[in-house]
C-alpha cells in the first residue's frame, strides 16, 4: 500500500462566484419577496379594515387624543357647512363628522380616523368663496364616508408588522407606533384612486347643496397658482392632494356627464368669519 498526499486542487470546497454577484441576486429576490408579501398583506388589511365598525374607529381615535374641538365661530361655521354636505352625502347613521379648526398658517385640510376633519387657517384664508371651501370639506367628508382613514391605517399596520417581522422588531411595538401616530389627528396617506373616489362623491354633494358646480375646482386652481409662484415652498395641501391638473379635468368630465350646472352664483364666506381671520 502506498501512502501519499497529492496536491488538492484549489476551489473544490468553495464556489467561484463573486460574493457581490450573490449579494445582488439575493438582495433582488428578497426585495421582490418582501414587496409581494407587503402588498398582499396591505390589500388584505385594506379589505378587512373597511369592515371595522365606525363606532370602533371613533373609539380608536378617541383613545389617543382629545377629540372635542376647541369652540370658535370659524369652527361653528365650518361645522355647519360640513353638516349640510354630510346630509347630502347620505352618510350611514352612526357616522358623525366633527370639524376642527386649527389656527395655524399651514395651508392644508385633512380627514382622519373617527370622522374628524381638520381645516387649517392657512387654507381658509385662501378660499375665495364658500363653494370652494365646501368642495374641500366635502372631499374630506367623502374620505370618511368611504372609510379611507381606517383603510390607510390598516395598510400601515400590516406593512409595519411585515417589516417588523423581517427586521426583528416586535409586532406589537410596530402596531402601537402606527396606530399611535394615526390617532393624533395627523394626515394619513391616501392612494390616487381613493382621492378620485372622494372627489367624485364630494362634487355630487356640492351640487346637491348649492344647486350648481361652480367653485368646485377653485381650490385646485388656487393651490396650483401658489405652487407655481413658490416652487421651493409648495403649500402643504398639494402634498396631501396631488395631481391638481388631472383632478380639475376629471371634475369637469363628471360635471359634463351628469349635465350639472357648471356656473352659478358663488356664496361668499360670511364677513364675520373673514374679519375673524384678519384678527388672527
Amino acid at each position: 500500500m502506498k501512502f501519499s498526499n497529492p496536491k488538492i486542487p484549489e476551489g473544490i470546497n468553495t464556489s467561484p462566484d463573486h460574493p457581490l454577484k450573490e449579494f445582488a441576486w439575493l438582495l433582488g429576490s428578497v426585495s421582490l419577496l418582501i414587496i409581494t408579501v407587503i402588498s398582499v398583506l396591505g390589500l388584505m388589511a385594506e379589505f378587512l379594515a373597511a369592515r371595522i365598525p365606525f363606532s370602533y374607529e371613533m373609539e380608536l381615535a378617541g383613545r389617543f387624543t382629545e377629540t372635542t374641538p376647541d369652540p370658535s365661530p370659524a369652527r361653528d361655521y365650518l361645522q355647519d357647512i360640513a353638516d349640510r354636505l354630510a346630509a347630502a352625502q347620505d352618510l350611514p347613521g352612526d357616522m358623525k363628522i366633527t370639524v376642527h379648526y386649527a389656527d395655524d398658517e399651514v395651508a392644508n385640510a385633512f380627514a382622519t380616523l373617527g370622522g374628524h376633519v381638520v381645516i387649517y387657517r392657512g387654507l381658509l384664508e385662501k378660499m375665495k368663496s364658500e363653494n370652494a371651501l365646501a368642495m374641500v370639506l366635502s372631499h374630506e367628508i367623502a374620505h370618511i364616508k368611504h372609510r379611507h382613514p381606517v383603510v390607510a391605517l390598516g395598510r400601515g399596520v400590516a406593512v409595519g408588522i411585515a417589516l417588523g417581522a423581517l427586521t426583528g422588531v416586535s409586532a406589537n411595538v410596530v402596531a402601537d407606533r402606527v396606530i399611535g401616530n394615526a390617532g393624533t389627528l395627523t394626515a394619513l396617506g391616501f392612494s390616487r384612486s381613493q382621492e378620485s373616489e372622494a372627489d367624485a362623491t364630494a362634487l355630487s354633494a356640492l351640487v346637491t347643496v348649492y344647486g350648481h358646480a361652480n367653485g368646485s375646482t377653485d381650490v385646485f386652481r388656487t393651490f396650483m397658482e401658489i405652487g407655481r409662484s413658490q416652487p421651493l415652498n409648495p403649500p402643504e395641501f398639494l402634498s396631501t392632494h396631488p395631481n391638481p391638473e388631472n383632478r380639475i379635468e376629471s371634475i369637469a368630465e363628471q360635471i359634463a356627464d351628469h349635465d350639472w350646472q357648471p356656473i352659478g352664483t358663488l356664496t361668499p364666506i360670511p364677513t364675520a368669519v373673514i374679519e375673524l381671520l384678519e384678527i388672527d
Binding site: N13, T14, S15, D17, P19, E22, F23, L26, L27, S29, V30, L33
Partner: peptide
C-alpha cells in the same frame, strides 16, 4: 458584516451558503 448580511438574506430563501464556504475552508 458583509458575509453575515448575505447569509441572513440566504437564510430567507435557502441554498448554498457560499459566503461561509470560504470561511470554513
Amino acid at each position: 458584516y458583509f458575509k453575515r448580511f448575505v447569509s441572513g438574506l440566504r437564510g430567507l430563501i435557502g441554498g448554498r451558503m457560499k459566503t461561509y464556504e470560504t470561511l470554513l475552508d
